[in-house]
Amino acid sequence: MGLLESIRSLVWCQFLACGFFLLLFGWHIFQGDDLTALMYFSGSLVITLALLIGQNSSQNNLQLLSRLVFASYTLVCLLLLLVAPHKNSYLHLSLYLAYPLLAFYLLPFRTALLFVIGFSISANLLLMLQLEGTFRAVYIITFWLVTLLTSLNRFAYFSRQEALQKQLNRDPKTQLMNQQQLFIDLQKEQERAQREATFLGVVFITSLDNFDSENTKELGCIFAPYEGVYSVAANKLIALIPLAVPKDLQARKNKLRKDLPHLMLDFQLTSAEKPLAKDLTAFATKSRPTA
């Protein structure tokens, strides 16, 4: 399955899950079972939020909102166990099996793990009080087994993703080389310039808005393939430009200012004797300029 197909299938599955949540919500409202209906409704909110966040999970306000929505869903689930123990059908309890999946999907790994542990212990205590007989044993065993399996499965993927993050030399959002690769390449390019008796220019690029893969594709047409462009912050890029002679920088300056009038550009000529690492770090951490 290709990347695009996977994204499409993901969105379809989310729509489907949201649809079933709403369907069961409507059914329980029709049956007059308001608390169970509320649980399904909060479940549909969780999925809707997941749909809204999509791949853009880095925004702080969205992360806070997802925590709040998920906390409300957890509270409704526990409340249902506490106040409505004797029902004709225990079918709604099956949704508790999917709790860790929703937690790990919506929240960061460590937060989700805290939610799952807290919920599993509370739910287990309430289930011990509310259920009885063979059904209690079967339900609690299934519940813990699924929780454990989900946690292990997520942990396996999480450790793999962490390992990949460490190996990453590109920024996932802009698809450009990241800051770590910049420092490696800067040193290498400086040494190479010294060996080949050439020069290295550095362009500091700042934008009022954040860069995304579309803007950076445009930049890719302006810079030559051997001129490395690196992402150092959401709205800041750095380009390393190998130059034959120092006066070439002036020509590049004029051309880039003409091609990129909407961006703030600063230029600097480097040499092996003049370490740039501090300047680069200061540029990356400097606060966002105002319009």
């Binding site: 990347l3 299938s9 899950a17 999907y105 793999r160 030399n169 996932p172 698809q175």
Partner: peptide
């Protein structure tokens, strides 16, 4: 459907990272 999107999202994230890894 919950299990399906959970699995796809896990694989998707890993695949995206794998495609970006250059080392």
């Amino acid at each position: 459907s919950i299990a399906c999107f959970y699995t796809i999202s896990n694989r998707l994230k890993t695949k995206q990272l794998e495609q970006l890894v250059g080392i």
